[in-house]
Design a protein around this nucleic acid. Structure first.
Lengths: 193, 193
DNA sequence: ACCTGAACACCGTTCAAGT
DNA sequence: ACCTGAACACCGTTCAAGT
């Protein structure tokens, strides 16, 4: 009662478990059980769990929609918004990608997307790297907080002290204010798009 | 062969273990052993491990030196630098504080420090919150990456592809470029300090 | 109030052995 | 090449019982 499995099968099941129960549900034993396989079988396809998480992060990043606007400031805003939206699609998605990014394993593609947009803006390589770093850390950090807050509220763990009228400080508009602040800081060094 | 312990004892031992072995060494069993106490004794002083980590994060944040410069842009740069420096003092310090911040338990004091500086700059409350959020996420994210990279290099896990001449993109100067980028974005909305 | 003793319910990872 | 079976070495947390 077994069956051969593929890397892609593992990743598909992992995403399903993540979407359903977040990072706490993403355990090797459950992935294996879902595939009717021994847990040790997973270690033939991935060196360890961290590598699996990195592949998952890459997959999420690849699904981020490309910006369609013209003009680098709008394109940058759009890319940030699209990244946040994709992270929010998966439970604990921001936390997962932020962790993988910190471990320098996955999410390397994300920073290249940002740098690509900043090249178009006419920044030097160094300036583009700096701006990409600031933007990416903001999007990942903000969205991690936002998602954690949302999921805590969903579980009824609401702190009445910090949210008096159910108005949280989070949301698309609040998020975009941060993005625009950074874009303003880029402006002086960039050519007009 | 026991002894009564205090919250402060637990925190002191926890910091020692953190400094020596990072987050992987920060396990309840080792804290208890170091204090000659059963692990369950810790749960009288802290509801769970997460609460302990939050208290640890608060303690680290409280140790961040206050800026001494005059003029809000310099003061802001200095505060960011001091925060990074303090995080680097403890192994996995940035990761610990970033996680506690994401869980909204500790590190609430950190954002108040930033907002305080931005009030002096003459920003509105909303603008101050936005700028504080961007700066804090950048410092925590950047320093987490930097520290992870350092510690991986210390263990000899260096990737020769990504660091061809042992010149890493990390360092105080590189860090400050990001801070200055954000400060430039704040400028247009702030009064002169 | 504060701690012991002992258990519960989990984890990720390894490795000889099979096919 | 790809998986089984079984173990190893850990974790955080709970809870009756002691003092």
């Amino acid at each position: 009662m077994a069956g051969r499995i593929l890397r892609a099968d593992i990743l598909r099941v992992a995403i399903e478990l993540l979407d359903r129960g977040g990072l706490p549900a993403l355990v090797m034993r459950r992935i294996a059980a879902e595939l009717d396989v021994q847990q040790s079988a997973l270690y033939w396809h991935f060196r360890n769990k961290q590598e699996l998480l990195a592949a998952l992060a890459d997959q999420i990043i690849d699904a981020v929609a490309a910006p369609t606007s013209t003009g680098w400031p709008s394109r940058l805003e759009e890319l940030c918004g699209n990244l946040r939206a994709e992270l929010l699609e998966h439970k604990d998605g921001a936390d997962l990608v932020a962790t993988a990014f910190a471990f320098r394993l996955g999410a390397g593609e994300a920073i290249r997307r940002f740098e690509g947009e900043l090249d178009r803006a006419g920044l030097s390589t160094q300036e583009a790297q700096t701006a990409a770093s600031v933007l990416l850390h903001y999007v990942l950090g903000y969205t991690t907080n936002e998602q954690q807050h949302r999921q805590a509220a969903d579980l009824g763990a609401l702190d009445p002290q910090s949210m008096p009228h159910d108005r949280t400080p989070f949301g698309t508009e609040d998020f975009l204010r941060g993005v625009r602040l950074v874009v303003r800081g880029i402006g002086p060094a960039a050519a007009d798009g």
